[in-house]
Design a protein around this nucleic acid. Structure first.
Lengths: 138, 138
DNA sequence: TTTACAAATCGTAACCATTACGATATACTA
DNA sequence: TAGTATATCGTAATGGTTACGATTTGTAAA
């Protein structure tokens, strides 16, 4: 999802476009990887001294609800990335830099009747390790 | 993993077998599902009034390190279950009761050369929803 | 442009899961 | 049964997250 798509989504839902919101979306839309609330806070703090955690978390939740961001839970901490938008896929996630790589396979294609009497709400497939550049650096 | 397997594992590694440890292992080995530290604490508190969080968390970590328990991170909270032990597989996890069902498919079988220059450390495939009994109850 | 007001942010405190540590109790070994 | 290393308790601290009254800001109407 691009910066403009995200801005449109916000405005179409009647939310105000603030400087902080634009900066948050910019932060995620220009980086292909998962970031924590703390990562975002520190990035924002540089430009908006004294920014409140309330602002950071409220907007992370809002953007997640609007599908501008997607999230995953790693080591009991939430991580966020810009929503890829295009058709369903999963990710490799680098343990060091949070960078991602798209994986165009989905195990649900093969789930068949394994969960016949179950209600399926969601699923997660993630591969963890080191991306080529972190691998080389370490 | 059975209660006895877990006790042997502990003793083979030189750890003491305490009443609390036995009760913790029993709690997990007799329930097929994911439980939080709080779930365990409340279960233990009934029998061992005033049990310390230190005891709960220290043993959860120890058991995890010894592969007696496996863990997953859901909604930024760690959940634990007894290690299944038999050959590699994944789980359906019920959003209400934490119960699990084994899924004998693994997307890594199809990963091919998708991550050629990457180091792969770990992966996760989980399906979430309602198990048949929670589905009926709700 | 200015005004008016709903919405967003700040400053800060509280909450919850988790970790940590000195003092005490317990399991195991000899 | 005694000695010692280890486990537990009691409690405080930490880190991520949530919450809220007071203030500021974006937007739309005048």
């Amino acid at each position: 999802m691009s910066l403009n798509d995200a801005i449109n989504t916000l405005q179409n839902h009647g939310y105000k476009m603030t400087h902080r919101r634009k900066a948050i979306i910019k932060y995620f839309s220009t980086s292909d990887g998962y970031r924590t609330a703390k990562d975002l806070y520190e990035h924002m703090e540089a430009k908006y001294t004294g920014i409140s955690y309330d602002t950071v978390y409220r907007n992370l939740h809002l953007f997640h609800d609007l599908d501008i961001l997607e999230s995953t839970s790693l080591n009991a901490e939430k991580h966020f990335r810009i929503n890829c938008g295009d058709h369903h896929h999963h990710h490799f996630i680098c343990n060091l830099c949070g960078g991602t790589k798209k994986l165009n396979i989905c195990p649900m294609d093969d789930i068949g009747t394994l969960l016949k009497n179950y209600t399926i709400d969601d699923h997660k497939f993630e591969v963890y390790g080191l991306c080529p550049s972190c691998k080389q650096a370490s």
